[in-house]
């Protein structure tokens, strides 16, 4: 019966829950994320507040989860971190400018297209979806930036995280970053 097997899939399998990481790992993740977001937020506060631009966007918090919490994940590698945000921001800004009259459509097209593009370019980075959505939802400041949004939070932000991740994730013996560059 098709329906039954379809519904059975929703129960999930009993397999596959990854184990909890060690306490030291938790601490390393905490410290890395603290330093990464601190760097972004401090630079934002120092150089961007009061200007028309911003460096801190919510999706960088999501990137920090991957880059400091799941260091080995393919989703957390430099290609994905930077590529995912840049492509998604491009898609998001374009959707806002072309489809902004229908916000629900602009938002859904932005996220869906961002995922498709990241897949095609092997830059899948889940926070990219958030970046695409932020470009459409805005704040007014984000909307006003136009394609500068691609450059200023969406390229520079991930680059700052990348630098911190490179410096920090290679300190602990059990960590290394990245697994690959491009």
């Amino acid at each position: 019966m098709r329906l039954a097997s379809y519904l059975r899939k929703m129960r999930g399998s009993v397999h596959g829950r990854p184990p909890r990481v060690s306490l030291s790992e938790v601490l390393w993740s905490w410290t890395g994320a603290f330093l990464g977001i601190a760097a972004v937020a401090w630079l934002n506060q120092r150089f961007f507040i009061g200007s028309d631009l911003t460096l801190a966007i919510g999706s960088l918090g999501a990137s920090a989860v991957l880059v400091f919490g799941a260091v080995r994940s393919p989703l957390a590698q430099p290609r994905n971190l930077v590529g995912g945000h840049v492509l998604s921001a491009l898609v998001g800004v374009t959707c806002w400018q072309w489809l902004g009259g229908e916000p629900w459509l602009a938002q859904s097209v932005a996220v869906a297209t961002a995922i498709a593009l990241m897949h095609l370019t092997r830059t899948l980075h889940p926070p990219g979806g958030a970046t695409a959505l932020i470009a459409v939802i805005g704040s007014d400041q984000v909307h006003a930036m136009g394609y500068l949004f691609v450059l200023f939070p969406a390229t520079l932000g991930p680059l700052v995280l990348l630098v911190v991740a490179l410096l920090f994730n290679n300190l602990p013996a059990a960590r290394r970053y990245p697994e690959f560059w491009l």
Binding site: P18, S22, E25, A70, R72, A174
Partner: peptide, 24 residues
């Protein structure tokens, strides 16, 4: 078995972004 895989995952420090089904 799942236990074999989970035990191996525990031996590798850091969070592995993979399920036992994927690994298998």
């Amino acid at each position: 078995t799942d236990d074999d895989i989970l035990e191996a995952m525990r031996e590798i420090p850091g969070y592995l972004d993979i399920t036992t089904m994927d690994f298998r």
